[in-house]
Design a protein around this nucleic acid. Structure first.
Lengths: 342, 342
DNA sequence: GTGAAAGCGCTAACAG
DNA sequence: CTGTTAGCGCTTTCAC
């Protein structure tokens, strides 16, 4: 029992004009609240408004975009929408952009540079008024095209070396340093570092550097065995052996620092199946503060990112460029805060 | 040091045509791979292609949309992008839609019917080719407008009574029934039910019904004290007292069934701070299977939704309507599976 | 107070 | 093999 359907052609100002025996100009003027400006009579105005409502008129955005040259659309590109850090970012931006009277379009790259490139292209074709980019950090040339097209955009969370653009993110270095020093203060020196694959991204890079620097500062020689990188694509498999090996030998670490929430969840899962004797006194510190840590019956100290502030600031800078054309290049690092749990 | 910038007008087929002293038609034909069809000479073709590349030509989607009457854009509306269930849905759809050569635009309503209405309007104005809707279930009339406009759309996860549309979701009734019976089989009859506010949505409604029906079937009189509804807007506050009260009296439940992951996370958090004596032997079963349950050192049995299948099926139905105009109304309930943890 | 006409970028029917 | 032209829906300049 198939019913073949066609999208019904929607009503245009032409339809309204025809019904009312007026010009499309008149209709357009009224619908854009320019009645006063053009001293259109109240009767005419009301007639138009009533007809528009009656026919359930909706402006055609494509026509508007073509005519006006802008869309009131902002594109947000995130690397992994199923990661709560990015889904929270999406939620905040969705609100902020909405409040500015713009429309947020969210896109997911899955940490895939190719996909990111395609999305940027598409955003350009769609003529969005601005782009918020959490990049895979592997698309320098594509991003430079944004610059060439002079389309306002801002880098969030992940910085890209050599790109002319404003950036807002958390101070990964300070956050990690605080975390490592917190451990060292407790006379812990055997600190493992667990991270995840796309280590090209600035945030993970800075965290690792802070880990090394801080150990060095306290004259602790880093043990290469303690440094583990999980592969993003098959993290669940990868965690199996690597975490097991970490705790197998005599030289088990006294603490682990886990560089992001994805790695943390998998590591914690694996830790659960290890002998508790091994992990009982293990101190765990993770970057990103996620709800999980408030549920676990054992303490996980975490480095919390000021997500709301990041989004606020980024939105402010982006809209300042869109609305006022002011494109000062700003790099803003917001402080991370250590949330100690005992 | 402000630099005023303007979005540079991007290059059009006109620019290419002018540079090459050919017509825009010619350029359009080549760029749309119709060279053979119109037997355009290879030299001309190559010239056009080269020029397009050189000028970094990108088609203008607004013009395309206006001309062609479609956009190759699909809109996805979710009630809470920061809920992992919906962010997973978003991720899968993003992939599926991409594979069809379409573009997914993700929108967040925050469980706010007003916002949902605005988004639907906007999608209509943007002339999307299809809509995937996880509704607040409070916008019947707006959704009917979709029907009137004959724009393909599909309801996912949440069903709306009295709406003519296809639907794909999990069998909430069966999933909950299985969970409750699993508890009853263990001779547990004091089962609390914890849910969250927008109980207007079909999924939560069906789960509650299944809870009641299953108790009844086993001749267990439901205890109103065991039924707790947390408010979505300030769930963290609300959970404080309500959960405390639940376990305060003599008549503590032996098990809790928690109707979704948001409520579960908050409840579990609260449970942690209660005397373990109260909660030690408590059986916990939750709807939605989230990574948290694999990390917790105590067992939480969960009802898992076949998210990928839901998305696959929904995508199939939607694209069947978009591509082939076949709009059979289908209601599809996929089975939930109980994941027992001990 | 209101209307005619141009044009945003593109495709497709038609012409040659 | 290639070009001319109309028109998608809208706003805006100019005219009366």
């Amino acid at each position: 029992m198939n019913k073949k359907k066609n999208k019904t052609k929607s009503v245009s100002i032409k339809d309204i004009a025809k019904d009312l025996n007026v010009s499309t100009t008149l209709v357009s003027l009224v619908l854009n609240n320019k009645s006063k400006e053009y001293s259109i009579s109240d009767i005419t105005k009301e007639k138009v408004l009533a007809k528009a409502k009656e026919l359930n008129y909706k402006p055609n955005r494509a026509a508007l975009s073509l005519r006006l040259g802008h869309t009131k659309n902002i594109g947000l590109i995130v690397p992994d929408i199923s990661n709560i850090f990015y889904s929270r970012i999406s939620r905040y931006f969705s609100d902020l952009v909405d409040k500015k009277g713009y429309n947020l379009m969210i896109y997911n790259t899955d940490e895939n540079p190719e996909k990111e490139k395609k999305i940027i292209d598409s955003l350009l074709e769609q003529n969005v008024d601005g782009i918020i980019l959490t990049s895979t950090c592997m698309n320098q040339s594509e991003i430079n095209i944004l610059r060439e097209n002079n389309i306002p955009y801002i880098l969030v969370d992940r910085y890209i070396q050599g790109i002319e653009a404003s950036f807002v993110g958390v101070n990964n270095y300070q956050g990690t340093k605080d975390a490592i020093e917190y451990l060292i203060q407790q006379n812990i020196s055997k600190i493992a570092y667990i991270t995840v694959d796309p280590t090209s991204v600035s945030s993970l890079d800075e965290r690792k550097k802070a880990y090394h620097d801080t150990l060095k500062k306290h004259k602790i020689t880093p043990n290469p065995r303690y440094e583990i990188t999980l592969s993003y694509d098959n993290i669940e498999k990868d965690v199996e052996n690597k975490i097991f090996n970490l705790f197998r030998s005599e030289e088990s670490p006294e603490a682990v620092f886990i560089a992001n929430n994805k790695a943390a969840i998998e590591t914690l899962k694996r830790l659960k199946s290890l002998k508790t004797s091994v992990t009982q006194d293990l101190k765990i510190v993770c970057f990103d503060n996620i709800p999980l840590y408030d549920v676990l019956p054992y303490p996980v100290t975490s480095v919390s990112q000021p997500i709301l502030q990041i989004c606020n600031k980024a939105s402010e800078i982006l809209f300042n460029e869109i609305l006022n054309g002011e494109a000062d290049e700003q790099k803003i690092l917001l402080p991370a805060v250590l949330i100690v749990r005992n």
